[in-house]
Amino acid sequence: MKARIEIRLKPGVLDPEAAAIERALRQLGFAGLKGVARAKVIEVELEARGPEEAEAELRAMCERLLANPVIETYAIALLR
């Protein structure tokens, strides 16, 4: 089974890299630009008996290593 985990900073945690990207886009003249956010994507392949077991396993991976709950949130999408 494959899954896609998206990790992003919680609202309110300043992301200086996203701010720098936004400034650069503005400099290029994208006047309608309203905001930029950045996320990390981690793709995982795993063996599981079903989607529920896979999701529980993936959630444990996020809680124990992939995301830092102090500053980040995560979203899990099972691909197949």
């Binding site: 900073l9 945690v13 300043l14 992301d15 200086p16 890299e17 720098a20 830092n68 102090v70 500053i71």
Partner: peptide, 17 residues
Amino acid sequence: LTEAGLLPGALVRNRGL
């Protein structure tokens, strides 16, 4: 130590990059 949960908070990229 913050990542291990022994201290509160987290350390992220410097504001000025």
